[in-house]
């Protein structure tokens, strides 16, 4: 569904991605693990067109999206839950969701309303707080809102940047449970994680990034048994 081919991204003269090649298959959960500064966030930003790749290509459903503006890419069906949630804290929960549907046309209003009801079913707590400003939500609720907001653009592929960051284990569990539910319904998911244990347990296929490069890849089972992964990432 998503193919990233030999992508290199720079910040000025600093190279953050070096010939990264990976794919996220339809209907699978793919994860990318790697230490802080490995280039995971940069990779997701490059996929969505928020940062331009200098070399290489990105394909989504066999269409090249490398140079497209984010608005187009979101409309084609990729959506991102940014690192650190980045909810619109001064806006109401409902307005946050409305902004998630930003790229959708005005005539979709009824559909947008239906999708809102869908995410409210997924996260009932958001329905209870729909008129509250988003900044008043707890950390876990904010992560739910960030996911709900990303779903409002009707993605086929959902990118999540460290969804477990700063959350209690119980909350992480419940969020992953919801992600599995979405996966069951046919959503393709690409998760970036620092916490390798969570990532490997959740995924079908996994990439390991190190200093801007893909260092290792394999099925979750393979990587769980890999000595290096055990030593460095699983402690």
């Amino acid at each position: 569904m998503l193919r990233v081919e030999k992508v290199s991204t720079f910040y000025g003269n600093i190279q953050a991605l070096r010939d990264v090649t990976l794919r996220a298959r339809r209907g699978r959960i793919t994860t990318i693990i790697g230490a802080n500064g490995a280039g995971k966030t940069t990779l997701l930003r490059t996929i969505l067109g928020l940062t331009q790749a200098r070399h290489g290509h990105v394909f989504f459903e066999d269409e090249e999206i490398t140079k497209l503006p984010p608005e187009r890419i979101v409309r084609m069906g990729i959506s991102q839950v940014p690192q650190g949630r980045q909810i619109f804290s001064e806006l109401s929960v409902e307005d946050n969701l409305q902004l998630g549907a930003y790229v959708r046309r005005f005539k979709d209003r009824a559909e947008i309303q239906r999708d809102k009801e869908f995410v409210f079913e997924l996260f009932p707590v958001l329905y209870d707080r729909r008129r509250q400003t988003a900044g008043t939500l707890s950390g876990g609720e904010q992560q739910m809102l960030a996911i709900a907001r990303a779903l409002m653009s009707r993605p086929k592929l959902l990118l999540l940047d460290e969804p477990s960051m700063g959350l209690a284990p119980k909350v992480i569990q419940s969020i992953f449970k919801t992600l599995f539910e979405l996966h069951e319904k046919g959503l393709t998911i690409l998760i970036v994680e620092q916490d390798a244990k969570i990532a490997l347990e959740a995924s079908d296929y996994c990439y390991v990034m190190r200093t801007g490069k893909i260092a290792l890849e394999g099925s979750a089972k393979e990587l769980l048994e890999n000595e290096e992964v055990k030593r460095i990432y699983l402690g």
Binding site: L48, S79, Q80, F88, Y102
Partner: peptide, 15 residues
Amino acid sequence: RALHSSEIAAEAAGV
């Protein structure tokens, strides 16, 4: 108002 609140998220939403 969204971009005021979080430019990163606004961009990610396609703004």
